[in-house]
Amino acid sequence: MTPEILRVFRPRLPPATEVAAYLARADEDRHYTNRGTLVLELEARLARLFGVNRHGVRTASSGTAALEVAILAHAGRAEERRLALMPSFTFAATAIAAERCGYIPHFVDISPETWALDPDALLHHPRIEEAGLILSVAPFGRLPDVAALERLQAAARVPVVLDAAAGFGALADGRAQVSGAVPICLSCHATKGFSTGEGGAVLWDNAPGQARVEQAANFGFLGSRQAQMAGTNAKLSKYHAAVGLAMLDGRTERQRANAAVTAAYREAAGAAELPGCLHLAPDISPAYALFEAPSPAVAARLQARLTGALVETRAWYEAGLAVQPWFQRYGADRLPVTDSLAPRLFGLPIAHDLPEEKIGLVLDLIAERGAERGYA
Rank of each mutant, 00 (worst) to 15 (best):
A138Y: 09
L117R: 04
V146H: 00
A181L: 08
E357C: 05
N206A: 00
T90V: 10
H74Y: 02
G320T: 02
L38G: 00
H74I: 04
P139Q: 03
G308F: 10
F50I: 06
Q228A: 11
S237V: 10
D29V: 15
R373V: 00
A66R: 12
L46T: 04
A92K: 14
H55Y: 05
R212G: 00
R7A: 15
A73W: 06
A304Q: 14
E318H: 05
Q210Y: 04
R25V: 08
W115V: 07
L171T: 11
C185Y: 02
G36S: 11
V243K: 01
A166E: 04
L248R: 04
A257S: 15
I5V: 15
L203A: 08
A97N: 06
R334C: 10
G63L: 12
R10Q: 14
N53A: 15
F9Y: 15
E356A: 15
D120S: 14
T191N: 11
A138R: 08
F140K: 03
R251H: 06
E4T: 14
S237K: 07
R212L: 07
H240C: 04
L365D: 09
L248H: 06
A332R: 15
P282L: 04
V261P: 09
D29M: 09
A16M: 11
A304K: 12
R305I: 08
D249L: 13
R254V: 13
